[in-house]
C-alpha cells in the first residue's frame, strides 16, 4: 500500500529473519543451559553421589542424598497443601464464581503469582519459623505451597472453563445435584488438564531457592522430620557454589544437573499427559 515494492520486500525479509532469530535464541537457551550443566556436572554424578551424605571439606566421596530426599519431602508436602487449595479455589471460580468475591480472588491470585519468591519466604518465616522458633521442612513447604496455589488455581479454572456447558446441562437434567455434577462429571472431564497444571506447578517450585533460605534452612545430615531443618537441592547448590572449594563446585554442578533432570522429567510428564490421546 505504501513504499517501494522492493523496499517493502526487503523489510519483510528482515523482519522475518529477526523474529526467527529471536525464536531460535530463546529455544537455544534451554539447550545451552542443559548442555553446559551436563558438561560440567555429568562426571560427578554417580550412584554414590546420589545415595551418600555430604562429607567434610577435604574428604572425598560425599553425596547429596539428604538434599534429594529433602527436596522430595518439602516439594511433596507443598503439593499436598497447594494442589487441593488451588483446585478447589479454581472450581469455585469456574463453577460458582460470578460476583465480586470471584473478581477479587482472581485478581489476588494473579498478583500473588507475581510476588517475588523471597518475599513469600519471608512471609513463611514470619508466620511459622518465628512463632515456632525453629527452621523447619514444614515452613519451607508452606512457602512453596503459597507459590503453587495461584498457578494451580488459574490453570484449574481455565481447564474447567473448557468443559462445555452442555455437559453440565445434561447432568443437571438427569436430576443430579449441582455439587455432584461438579465433582463427578465436570472435574473428571477436566482432570488431565488439572493434573498437568499441578505438575507444572510442582516443577516450578522444585527449583525455588530464595523461599527456602530462611525456612527449610539446610542441613548437612538427614532431616529429622517436618519440624526440623532439612537440606534441599536448590539450597545445597547455592551453598556449594559460593564455597571456595573446587570439589564442592563440582558437586554443585552435579546437583544442578540432578535438579534440572527432575524438573525436566516432571515437565515432560505433564505435557505428555495433556497430549490428546489417539481416539480409539
Amino acid at each position: 500500500m505504501s513504499g517501494h515494492p522492493a523496499r517493502r520486500k526487503r523489510t519483510n525479509a528482515l523482519m522475518l529473519g529477526l523474529t526467527a532469530l529471536c525464536a531460535l535464541l530463546s529455544a537455544s537457551a534451554l539447550f545451552a543451559i542443559l548442555g553446559y550443566i551436563a558438561w560440567k556436572g555429568a562426571s560427578a554424578v554417580s550412584w554414590a553421589f546420589l545415595t551418600r551424605l555430604p562429607v567434610p571439606v577435604g574428604e572425598t566421596g560425599g553425596g547429596i542424598a539428604n538434599s534429594v530426599l529433602g527436596s522430595l519431602e518439602v516439594v511433596g508436602l507443598a503439593a499436598l497443601i497447594g494442589v487441593p487449595v488451588g483446585v478447589l479455589g479454581g472450581v469455585y471460580l469456574a463453577e460458582y464464581g460470578r460476583g465480586r468475591l470471584a473478581f477479587w480472588v482472581r485478581y489476588a491470585a494473579d498478583v500473588l503469582n507475581g510476588v517475588p519468591s523471597i518475599v513469600v519466604g519471608l512471609f513463611a518465616y514470619a508466620l511459622i519459623v518465628l512463632p515456632m522458633k525453629r527452621f523447619s521442612a514444614l515452613s519451607g513447604s508452606v512457602a512453596l505451597s503459597v507459590i503453587m496455589v495461584p498457578v494451580v488455581l488459574r490453570s484449574t479454572e481455565d481447564f474447567l472453563r473448557l468443559v462445555p456447558g452442555t455437559i453440565r446441562e445434561a447432568a443437571l437434567a438427569l436430576g443430579v445435584p449441582r455439587w455432584k455434577v461438579t465433582l463427578r462429571v465436570v472435574l473428571p472431564s477436566a482432570s488431565r488438564g488439572i493434573l498437568t497444571g499441578a505438575l507444572l506447578a510442582v516443577s516450578r517450585v522444585a527449583g525455588e531457592t530464595a523461599p527456602l533460605i530462611f525456612t527449610a534452612f539446610g542441613n548437612t545430615f538427614w532431616g529429622r522430620g517436618l519440624l526440623e531443618p532439612v537440606a534441599t537441592l536448590p539450597l545445597t547448590i547455592y551453598n556449594y557454589a559460593i564455597s571456595p572449594y573446587d570439589d564442592w563446585h563440582r558437586q554443585a554442578w552435579a546437583a544442578a544437573l540432578v535438579l534440572m533432570l527432575f524438573v525436566l522429567a516432571v515437565n515432560l510428564a505433564a505435557r505428555l499427559w495433556l497430549r490428546p490421546r489417539a481416539a480409539n
Partner: peptide, 16 residues
C-alpha cells in the same frame, strides 16, 4: 428433573 427428563439439540454424551 428425575420426573421430567430432557434431550438436547446437540448430542451431549459425557466425554469421560
Amino acid at each position: 428433573r428425575r420426573e421430567v427428563g430432557m434431550v438436547f439439540q446437540r448430542p451431549n454424551p459425557f466425554p469421560t
